[in-house]
Structure formats: C-alpha cells, structure tokens
Design a protein around this nucleic acid. Structure first.
Lengths: 130, 130
DNA sequence: GCATGAACAAATTGTTCATTG
DNA sequence: CAATGAACAATTTGTTCATGC
C-alpha cells in the first residue's frame, strides 16, 4: 500500500480519498453512497466532484488489504424495506494501519502544499498571510 | 487548451509544468534540458523529479498551439562545437495566451490549495500559521 | 555523449453497463 | 429504483528506444 502514497508530483486522488474514507469508517454507520454524497458536498466549494467508482474502488481496496471488513445490512428506512447496504468496520490491523497512514499522509499533504505554495510564490509573488 | 487546466481533483502535472516553462521561455535563452535541470533542482526539496519526456511534450504542445516558435541553435560551449539545441521564443499570440493562462492558473492553484488545506484541517486540525 | 523526439507501456481515473434485492 | 460492483474506455504520465550531431 506504500506505492499509492506518493508519486512525485501531487498526491493521487485515491490516496486522498482513502484518508477521508478511513475517517468516515471510523465514525461508523455510513455506507458507500453516503460517503460519496458527503464528500461531494464537502468538496463542492473546490469544484471537486468524486465519482462513485473511485469511492467503491477505494473501499474494495481497503477490504482486500484487510483494513476493514464488510457487513451487509438492510437500509432500515421507512418505506424502503429491502435495500441492501454495506457497512464497513475496522479490523484490528486496520486500526493500526490507519494510524500510520494518517501520519504518512500528513507528510504527503505538507509536501504538496509546499509544492503549490512554491509555485504560488514563483508566479504570483510571496504568499500572503492574513 | 482549456481542457488541461482543471480536472476536478488536483491540477495536472502538465498544466503545472506549462506554467513554469512559459515563465522560463519568457526569461529567454534556455533550452529543454536546462529547463529540466532547473525544475528538478527547484523541486528537489519537494521530492518532485519531473521527467524529460513531460518537459518535451509540454514544449511540443506549446509549439503546436502556436504559443512559441522554435529556433535551432548550436550550443556555443567551448569544446562542444556541434551540439544542436532548441531555443523557444514567444509568438505574439503566445504572449497574450500566457498572460491569460497565468491568471487562470492562479485560480486553479488557489483551488488546489483550498482543497489540500481543507484536508489538513479535516484530518489534522486547524491550519497553523506562523 | 548530449539534446531532442517518439514509441510504447503503465498507471490512474472516468463512463458505462450489469446485478441484486 | 438505490446501492453496489465490474467492464471498459480514456487520459495522463513514465520508461524505453531512436536519432542527429
């Protein structure tokens, strides 16, 4: 899973989403489509609209690597009786990996911010602080 | 050339490099390999090591779109008599396009910084300022 | 060997189709 | 029809090979 963390230029979408999904899984009780909706809402101001496919692929990856396990459930909403959803829970391994991953991603995000700020400064003058 | 500017998630490497190359071309009198070396040096602290292929492809793109014209020259270094290099100069169109592109990229880089700062704040608490 | 260029390959992401309850 | 999943397509980027002095 190390290979996904950095790529020289900017952080990859998949790695970025993974960080968010892990956090959301930690908070429990949500499922794929809701993750997607929440993320789209949060990122809307930045013009970033993730696709459902990226979300699911990231969740599959987390499952494949044993960071989370899946629990099938029925969406218990009034009127909707038989919609199956999948809830994700951390495994023991996953908890530990998350902790580590979170730390690594801090470094990575810092690096990306550094790169972008450098560009800002190179092309638009020194960074303005409020 | 609009399609390259943004892609929802983070700015693409090509768009990022283009901004730098345009600036370097404006400063005149350098050629491909030197651009590459300069960029690698500048980005080294950020662990970003662009490839020669990306640089050339970007330069070709600028040429194809008529932003720059190419001038073949002999690298006038002592001892090296016949090494051909290519110097890039802006076209009239290119000067104008660069001005516009620079402005657009400011918006784009701001957006990316926003997204990354949001992630920082979401996962590691409020942004620290010095 | 250095600068350039292009072919090719891999990686990443997005679009569309399929399934299941 | 909502949620999930997978096939497939496109895009983006990197690696390798080629060429001309």
């Amino acid at each position: 899973m190390e290979t996904e963390l950095k790529r020289g230029f900017l952080v990859r979408q998949r790695a970025f989403l993974k960080l968010y999904l892990l956090k959301m899984i930690e908070a429990n009780k949500r499922y794929g489509t809701q993750f997607l909706d929440d993320l789209r809402t949060e990122f809307k101001p930045y013009g970033y609209h993730p696709t459902h496919s990226e979300i699911y692929k990231t969740l599959h990856e987390l499952t494949r690597e044993g960071w989370v396990r899946r629990e099938k459930k029925l969406l218990g909403e009034p009127g909707v009786d038989f919609q199956e959803i999948i809830i994700y829970h951390f495994t023991e391994k996953g908890k530990q990996e998350y902790e580590l991953y979170r730390k690594q991603m801090k470094v990575e995000l810092d690096r990306c911010l550094g790169l972008l700020n450098q560009a800002m400064s190179d092309h638009y003058g020194p960074i303005k602080r409020k």
